[in-house]
């Protein structure tokens, strides 16, 4: 039977940061649903809370209030180790600055999330790593170190690493932010292909060209999800 439940369901999510007795509301009552196989782009001006939202979606952070269902399970109140386990199995991260580990080879970097899974055989890890690298076209560089690769190649390896664990969703935080336009396009093409093959992707970007690649665009402003029109009005009001 097909699972018709949304992959991600967020209701009334708020996140407040407390610094020197000042409350900063990074997110204020965010509602969001992401279906399986969807390609969602999140955009908004700097400081609107998109990265905070992505962190909470990625279980790197916890909300101050609100509800978060991942695969139908409540995950907002899990402890550190439970969140680690879900992150490892359900979520694949792609970062702006690639975040590959310089001491590890391409192969070892891609294998890394699999090594945190208990009980996975080495042969299975090897198969998955090779498969992931082939999907991003980097299998021929598996013995190289990150410093021996170009930025675009490093980001491809980072995508392979995110794919290796067969996650439910890929979370990409400004994946083209550190790349030139040619390499940026290539990475976006890669994500588009992955989406075509069935991956669920949630990408944070402030570049409308890349946001256009997604099925749906979510706009954030002052910690709230707003429509395209509302966003334009708010931005215009600021300019006035």
């Amino acid at each position: 039977m097909e699972n018709t439940q949304p992959l991600i369901e967020i209701e009334g999510l708020t996140k407040v940061f407390y610094t020197d007795e000042i409350e900063t509301h990074a997110l204020s009552g965010v509602h969001l649903k992401i279906e399986r196989g969807e390609y969602v782009a999140m955009s908004g001006p700097s400081g609107c809370g998109k990265s905070t939202l992505l962190s909470i979606v990625g279980l790197l952070d916890t909300p101050t209030a609100g509800k978060y269902l991942l695969n139908g399970n409540e995950v907002e109140n899990l402890d550190f180790s439970q969140r680690s386990r879900i992150r490892n199995q359900e979520i694949g991260f792609i970062f702006q600055s690639f975040n590959l580990i310089g001491d590890l080879t391409v192969y070892e970097n891609v294998e890394l999330p699999l090594t945190y899974r208990s009980g996975m055989a080495a042969s299975e890890r090897k198969r998955r790593v090779q498969e992931s690298l082939e999907r991003v076209g980097m299998a021929h560089r598996m013995r190289h170190y990150p410093s021996q690769l170009s930025g675009g190649q490093q980001q491809r390896v980072a995508v392979a690493r995110a794919l290796a664990g067969s996650p439910s969703i890929l979370l990409a935080d400004e994946p083209t932010g550190n790349l030139d336009s040619k390499n940026g396009e290539a990475v976006m093409e890669l994500l588009r292909n992955l989406h075509r093959e069935g991956s669920t992707i949630c990408m944070v970007t402030h570049d409308p060209r890349f946001a256009a690649h997604a099925d749906r665009n979510i706009h954030l402003f002052d910690g709230k999800v707003v429509s395209e029109e509302e966003l334009q009005q708010q931005l215009a009001a600021i300019q006035v």
């Binding site: 180790s81 680690s84 975040n99 580990i101 664990g165």
Partner: peptide, 16 residues
């Protein structure tokens, strides 16, 4: 620190 952060993001536990 960054590497540890990445590892944790990728699902490393505290024991790891």
């Amino acid at each position: 620190k960054r590497e540890i952060g990445i590892r944790l993001a990728l699902g490393a536990s505290r024991q790891d």
